[in-house]
Design a protein around this nucleic acid. Structure first.
Lengths: 231, 231
DNA sequence: ACAAAAGTGTTTGCCGTACACCCATGA
DNA sequence: TCATGGGTGTACGGCAAACACTTTTGT
């Protein structure tokens, strides 16, 4: 959306909502724009789709340029093409989301030159965003909130080894409600998609919890069915 | 997708899956193409998005041009932008579906000049379609199949007044499975979104069934919740 | 010994499912 | 009177929901 000719016809872009889970908070990656329009505003990472590039690849490229991460599953969720959504002309944007694991390197170095900085921001504190990105964010957040209830996407946000409490916290943050500990554990374990490890949490000043892994193999076997998290 | 310059850059189109329910069969509207590429093939109704036109409006325009129908709710469900999906160059298409009421006028007169004819075709008999339209159709069909389980979209396909058996047939066709009559009625009535009319079916050679209407008002009141149809 | 979170079962009510016969109507 | 679909109730099982105390560990 930078270096635009003064006048242009239709242009495609991809915008990405990149979710991460860190210190009990669900966050998304935002760019602080360093150019007009919306200079100084926060925006979703996004960029043009090249003429020789499949949309899906553009989304992956943008994720890579924003975070340095590769091989992350991205999901397209909506295409925004209202007139006037970009002040310079007709821009249609295909929106994707990704769920990533923020273990260790929380450092994000945007390669995108038009951004002053990239920051992880708690989904509860998102300010007004550039363009129609607030709307895009709301729609994407709604999608994952909906999806987490019947698909095991939560694991993509957690470190490989996690405790049941961490998993529950993540569900609570995404669904924005408290869950009952006993019911949550009972149900989650009943799905039989977790592998209990012979290992415990370390470095906590209270009773250490067991660690679990998501077991892809079990999941594939057991599930044509769905998960479900009501209360 | 006609009258293209030999070479062109990115182009947007909209493609529509227009569902109708008629004589107990779920059908979609297809165009028989009269021009290359894919001359003689069936395709989803679709066309270019004008530079000065919101995508949503393009979808509505195409529906109007294909069926003469206005004010139909259309829902965007996916954007297809693989390289090579159109043999002449880069074409990205935003796909919509619509559910329409085929009461009375089943006649469809396509205004689109590039089509030889438009036909309603049973979703069970769809042949190989032009471009990647088979894939688009499958994805769209999956969406409504999924959606009908928790949203009252079935009513958009039925005449204003309908019997419970007609409604059940429609669910059965979309979900592609038999439902139990007593359970279906019990559950449907329990949602309290139907208005029972003082009127019966006419012209049948057996006991006439009561007619019902979908009651939007009740629906809006009662539903933050969801519908649900398993078996 | 205290603080903090881990871990664990039972009861209740509702909802989904299975299942079969009589009724009303027109031909 | 027959054929065709319309219309109806009950019993069972399983799952979601509510709910509180003991255990472990580090400080």
């Amino acid at each position: 959306m930078e270096n635009l000719p003064a006048h242009f016809d239709s242009v495609f872009t991809v915008d990405c909502i990149i979710f991460g889970f860190d210190e009990g908070e669900l966050k998304i990656l935002l760019i602080e724009r360093n150019e007009e329009p919306f200079k100084g505003w926060f925006a979703l990472p996004g960029y043009f789709v090249e003429h020789t590039e499949a949309i899906e690849n553009a989304a992956k490229r943008i994720l890579y340029e924003s975070t340095g991460l590769k091989d992350i599953h991205m999901e397209q969720f909506y295409t925004f093409g209202a007139l006037g959504r970009h002040p310079h002309g007709r821009v249609i944007t295909v929106a994707y989301y990704a769920l990533i694991r923020l273990t260790g390197q929380k450092e994000v170095k945007p390669i995108t030159n038009f951004a002053k900085q990239a920051v992880w921001m708690n989904v509860k504190d998102i300010p007004q965003l550039a363009f129609d990105h607030s709307r895009i964010f709301r729609k994407g957040f709604e999608k994952i909130r909906n999806k987490i209830s019947y698909q095991p996407i939560a694991f993509e946000l957690l470190p490989e080894k996690f405790t049941l409490t961490q998993l529950q916290n993540l569900y609570e943050v995404i669904l924005n409600k408290k869950l009952d500990k006993r019911n949550f554990r009972k149900k989650m374990l009943s799905y039989d998609i977790l592998k209990e490890l012979d290992e415990k949490q370390k470095g906590v000043s209270y009773r250490a919890a067991k660690l679990y892994k998501f077991d892809k193999r079990k999941y594939a076997k057991n599930f044509q069915k769905e998960l479900s998290f009501g209360k």
